[in-house]
């Protein structure tokens, strides 16, 4: 065997070994990435389920020092704040998405809005909280459910706008043209035909948006604040599940910590369920995009 071949084969043995090692390393990345996921899910389930009980789901927090109590007010509060944010944010977001997909595909305004929508999604949520604080809490001189909802809806609008745009763009132009050829004005076509065709993807996007809001804490810390009692109107501070979990997690009492796990369990269940449902919906209805 001559030198060149010899060298090639010798090197090839090394190359092959390296190939196998690196492939193994790539697989190891998967394992490493999944360890925290598994750990988080199992801890939250294990410590959470144990602490969830009827009191937890039905009662407000017990006074400091007393044991028992629950997070019922926080669960309801989260529902109120997120619901209000969705009410304010989703229509605006969807309309903006319609603009981007239908009227602003290529014009400068559309491009700028699309760009900013993406950029705004990268702004830390604590910053959103500060802006909402200066916009709502300062002038009204009170922390409030409303302020929290404003903060969340500020995060929701860009997200929904972009998902709605994507959803509408999946509707093929053929449908658009076919409907317009029937002599319908464009806005009618959009409202009746296109939104109808895109409704599944729109719902999916909205659900994902809501699931994200439900998990937000930072923008609520100094807008909605917290409250030990049942909600007292939209203009009063309100308790939310995330802020309550935070408060109880850093508290030095074991039973509060336990309740924090229970709250995390409830929160995570709701969010993951919403996510899974939204994504299966998207997959089953629209198939794999290839």
């Amino acid at each position: 065997m001559n030198a060149a071949t010899d060298r090639y084969m010798r090197l090839y043995r090394r190359r092959k070994l390296k190939d196998q090692m690196m492939t193994a390393l790539l697989r190891l990345c998967v394992v490493l990435a999944l360890i925290p996921l598994v750990s988080i899910l199992s801890y939250v389930t294990w410590r959470g389920i144990g602490a969830v009980n009827l009191d937890f789901l039905m009662k407000t927090p017990a006074p400091v020092g007393a044991s028992g109590g629950g997070m019922a007010n926080s669960i309801v509060g989260s529902g109120i704040v997120v619901g209000l944010a969705a009410l304010m944010g989703i229509p605006v977001g969807v309309l903006a998405g319609i603009y981007l997909a239908e009227y602003g595909r290529n014009n400068l305004f559309g491009k700028v809005v699309r760009f900013l929508a993406d950029v705004l999604q990268g702004i830390p949520s604590i910053v959103v909280g500060i802006v909402a604080f200066t916009l709502v809490v300062l002038p009204m001189q009170t922390f409030s459910a409303f302020a929290g909802a404003v903060a969340l809806s500020m995060m929701l609008v860009p997200f929904v706008a972009r998902t709605a745009e994507e959803a509408i763009l999946t509707v093929s132009d053929d449908i658009r043209e076919a409907a317009m050829a029937l002599g319908q004005p464009r806005w009618r076509v959009i409202l009746s035909v296109i939104l109808h065709a895109a409704r599944g993807a729109l719902v999916t996007g909205a659900m994902l948006g809501i699931a994200r809001l439900a998990g937000e804490t930072a923008p609520l810390l100094f807008t909605a604040l917290n409250n030990r009692f049942w909600h007292q109107g939209l203009l009063a501070p309100i308790s939310t599940l995330t802020v309550q979990v935070y408060t109880y997690a850093i508290a030095p009492f074991d039973d509060w910590n336990a309740q924090a796990w229970a709250g995390a369990f409830v929160l995570l269940t709701l969010i993951l369920l919403t996510n899974v449902v939204a994504r299966t919906l998207a997959r089953s209805k629209y198939g794999e995009r290839s």
């Binding site: 065997m1 001559n2 030198a3």
Partner: peptide, 13 residues
């Protein structure tokens, strides 16, 4: 010579 053996080894080896 060398090339050829090289290629042979590649295929057959």
């Amino acid at each position: 010579g060398s090339v050829a053996v090289g290629s042979r080894a590649m295929t057959l080896g």
